[in-house]
Structure formats: C-alpha cells, structure tokens
C-alpha cells in the first residue's frame, strides 16, 4: 500500500492540482463573457451565479473539465458508433490511418537500417541525410502531400497513412541503426571465431541486440504517426477524423468539441504508446533481456 502510494501519490496530487488550476482558469477566462451577457440585460451577477455561468457556457473560452467529460460521454457512449457525430467513429478513422502508416514506416525503416548497417556506401551516402531530415519540420509538407495525392486520384485513408509513414520512418531508421550496431567488438569477434555466416550473426546477434532500441523508437514512431494522421486531416477540409473535429471546432468556435477531440487524441496516443510498452516488456522478458 505504501509502495503504491509512493509511485501513484505524487502523480495523483499533481493531477489534482492541475484539475483545480483548470477550474480556476475556466472561471477566470469565461468570467468576461458572463459579465458581458449579464450587463446587457442590466443584471449584476453574484459570485456564485458568476461561477455557475462560467461552468455552463455553450462556447466558453475554456470549458470546465466536467463539460468536456460530459461531451465525450455523449459522443462516445450515447451515440451509435456509425454516427458521424460519434467520437469513436472519428477516432477510428484517424487510428486506421495511423496504424497503416506506422506499419509501412516501421517495415521501411527496418529495411533501410539493415542496408545502412551492411553497406558502407549506403551508410555514408544516406545516413547524413536521415539525420539532417530529423531536423526538418516534415509536418509542413503534409498539406501538399494530401492535395497532390488527391489530384492523382488517391484519397481517403492512404494520403494520411503516407504522412504517418513518413513521420514514423525516421525514428525507426535511426534507432535500428544504433541497435544493429549495439553488439560490441568482442561479441562480433566471437562470431568470427566460429566463422558464422553474415546471416547467422544478423539473426542471432545483431537483431536480438537491437530489440530495446527498436521498441524505444517504435514508441516515438507511433506517437509521431498519430500526429501525422491528425495534421493530415487538416488541409483538405476533411469531414472525418479527430483532426477534422479540431478544424471544424475551430471554425465554429465549438471549444467543447475541440477539447473533447483533443482528449480523445491524447487517450489514443497514450494507449498506443502503452500497448507498445506492453509488447516490449513481454518480448524482452521472453528474450531474457529484462527481469
């Protein structure tokens, strides 16, 4: 019990403080509009009336947490999944693009990493560009990719998946190159003393050694994939997906809708990263790399 408190206690305390801050900020930010409304009908608000009003506006500057929770509840549990107003439906649209892009990006990244580790020329030509490309705001390309792919008749899931792929690809290459090079000289020399073929030392030494690095970059990659899919939904005036909800919300000042889409995206990101973390723990434990 004390152990649980030791880890969860501080986190819960800070979350509590954050929630209080959020309520405080909601009152402070929404008060102006509440007063404005009241003064127009020549009414002065008492403090409790003011607080009540700041918590229940339709388009508040900052919705109170319970308003967002209510909205999420109404748009997930109460709506049919197939409904266009269901957040589950929108989340699924974004998630499917994320996963597809992530899968492509990972496969491509691993293949390129293997090439880089085994070919000196490739290492010297490609690696500097891979590293440089990490410093470039790739996300800025998103609108163009969407529009261009649309113009050649590719629309829907694929353009978004393409952006996701692009974003998850780079962390995987960098992490895998590091991982495949993780075995030290002594281990590689040991393989040589057994005159093991290249393939054997790859499958039995390099690949297993790279696993912790692979998982670390997969976690970064999937988070990046999700961001890619969301941003990919912005430029086309998309009608579906979490990004579309954000954009529509910002057009019509529907702050509660923006916040609920945001929270959904956050939950999605956290679950995806947690899922990979779980696979990582199971895999590494089976391989005997962690206890």
């Amino acid at each position: 019990m004390t152990k649980l408190w030791h880890t969860a206690g501080p986190v819960l305390s800070i979350l509590l403080v954050l929630a209080l801050l959020w309520y405080g900020a909601a009152i402070a930010l929404n008060a102006a509009w509440a007063k404005d409304k009241a003064s127009r009908i020549d009414k002065t608000l008492s403090f409790s009336e003011l607080v009540a009003d700041t918590m229940s506006q339709e388009k508040p500057l900052l919705p109170a947490p319970h308003q967002v929770v209510k909205e999420i509840y109404e748009t997930t549990v109460l709506k049919k999944i197939t409904s266009k107003r269901s957040l589950v439906w929108h989340s699924w649209i974004t998630l499917s693009a994320t996963l597809l892009g992530f899968a492509f990006g990972t496969v491509l990244g691993v293949l390129l990493a293997v090439g880089i580790v085994y070919s000196r020329a490739m290492d010297m030509s490609v690696m500097p560009w891979v590293i440089t490309s990490q410093t470039i705001p790739i996300l800025a390309v998103a609108p163009m990719i969407i529009v261009v792919l649309n113009a050649v008749g590719v629309s829907g899931l694929l353009p978004k998946a393409f952006i996701s792929m692009y974003l998850s690809f780079f962390p995987v290459v960098v992490g895998m190159v590091k991982g495949l090079r993780a075995p030290d000289q002594m281990q590689l020399d040991q393989m040589r003393t057994w005159s093991a073929p290249k393939a054997t030392s790859f499958w039995k030494l390099r690949l297993p050694s790279s696993m912790p690095y692979l998982f670390a970059s997969l976690k970064i990659g999937i988070a990046a994939s999700l961001v890619g899919a969301i941003v990919g939904e912005l430029p086309t005036g998309a009608v579906a997906g979490l990004g579309a909800r954000l954009l529509a919300g910002s057009y019509y000042g529907q702050t509660i809708q923006i916040w609920s889409a945001l929270i959904c995206a956050a939950v999605l990101a956290a679950s995806l990263v947690a899922l990979i973390g779980m696979i990582e723990r199971i895999t590494l434990r089976r391989m005997g790399m962690v206890q």
């Binding site: 969301i230 941003v231 954000l246 954009l247 910002s250 702050t255 995206a265 990101a269 956290a270």
Partner: peptide
C-alpha cells in the same frame, strides 16, 4: 508523447 499540436486551434482562439 501527446499530439500537443492539437492545442493550436485553442491557442489561436485565445
């Protein structure tokens, strides 16, 4: 790890 970029519309509003 969150898609913080999604906060952008809110901050543009503010």
């Amino acid at each position: 790890a969150l898609p913080i970029i999604g906060m952008a519309p809110i901050l543009v509003m503010w």
